[in-house]
Computed example of a mutant assay.
Amino acid sequence: MDFQPTQDQRDLRAGVRALLEGRYGREALRASVDAAADAGAAVDRGLWRELGGAGFFALRLPESEGGVGLGLPEAVLVFEEAGRALVPGPLVATHLAAGVVPGAAAGTAVVTAFDLGGDLVAYLGEADAVLG
């Protein structure tokens, strides 16, 4: 069994990395986060909509439902790159809610998740929906 990424997966990773570095470089991302914090928000809604427009939250939705139609391995690569770029927010929870919570796939809704460990729900004040 071969566990190496396919050429398409490597291209996807490179494309996401280029998108995040080009649009959300460290300084631009820091300024975006600072502006959101100054406005009393934890999530930059503009950034969230841009990520939704780029397909971040609809990765695993079928194309027939407006999604990208990729699998879990590709989603892992995309979110690994988002983590590498330190993109803030409940990315995975919003991704998991795509197709279930209106606006999640497009990035017009911020979705967070309830942690059964008893910790506080991250981004609760910004969430349009909470999973769990």
Rank of each mutant, 00 (worst) to 15 (best):
M1D: 08
M1L: 11
D2V: 12
F3C: 10
F3Q: 10
Q4R: 14
Q4V: 12
Q4F: 13
P5S: 01
P5T: 02
Q7C: 01
Q9F: 14
Q9M: 15
L12R: 00
R13T: 14
G15V: 10
V16W: 03
V16C: 04
R17K: 13
A18R: 15
L19T: 10
L19R: 09
L19H: 05
L19W: 12
L20D: 07
G25A: 13
G25P: 10
R26L: 00
E27C: 01
E27P: 04
A28V: 08
L29V: 02
R30S: 11
S32W: 06
A35Q: 09
A35D: 08
D38M: 01
A39Q: 13
A39T: 05
A39I: 04
A39S: 07
A39K: 08
A41C: 01
A42Q: 14
V43H: 10
V43W: 07
V43Y: 08
D44T: 05
D44Y: 08
G46Y: 02
G46A: 13
L47T: 04
R49G: 03
E50N: 10
E50L: 13
L51H: 02
L51Q: 01
L51Y: 03
A54N: 02
G55P: 03
G55K: 07
F56R: 00
F57V: 01
R60V: 00
R60S: 02
L61W: 05
P62V: 08
P62N: 13
P62E: 15
S64E: 14
G67M: 02
G67T: 05
G67I: 03
V68T: 05
V68K: 08
L70F: 07
L70I: 00
L70G: 01
L70W: 12
G71R: 12
G71H: 07
G71K: 10
L72A: 14
P73M: 04
E74G: 01
A75K: 01
V78I: 06
V78A: 03
F79Q: 00
E80M: 06
E80N: 09
E81K: 03
E81F: 04
G83Q: 12
G83M: 04
V87W: 00
P88G: 07
P88Q: 08
P90F: 11
P90T: 09
L91H: 00
L91P: 05
A93L: 01
T94V: 04
T94S: 12
T94W: 06
H95L: 11
H95W: 15
H95Q: 14
A97M: 09
A98D: 13
V100Y: 14
P102E: 15
P102K: 06
P102A: 13
G103K: 08
A105P: 06
A106E: 15
G107A: 03
T108A: 12
T108K: 07
T108R: 09
A109M: 12
V110W: 02
V111R: 09
V111W: 08
V111M: 05
V111C: 05
T112W: 02
T112C: 06
A113E: 15
A113F: 01
A113L: 10
A113W: 04
F114S: 11
D115N: 04
L116N: 07
L116A: 15
G117Y: 06
G118C: 11
G118V: 09
G118I: 11
D119W: 08
D119Q: 11
V121N: 05
V121E: 07
A122I: 00
L124D: 11
L124P: 07
G125R: 13
A127P: 08
D128H: 06
D128K: 00
V130E: 03
V130L: 03
V130A: 05
G132H: 01
G132M: 06
G132I: 10
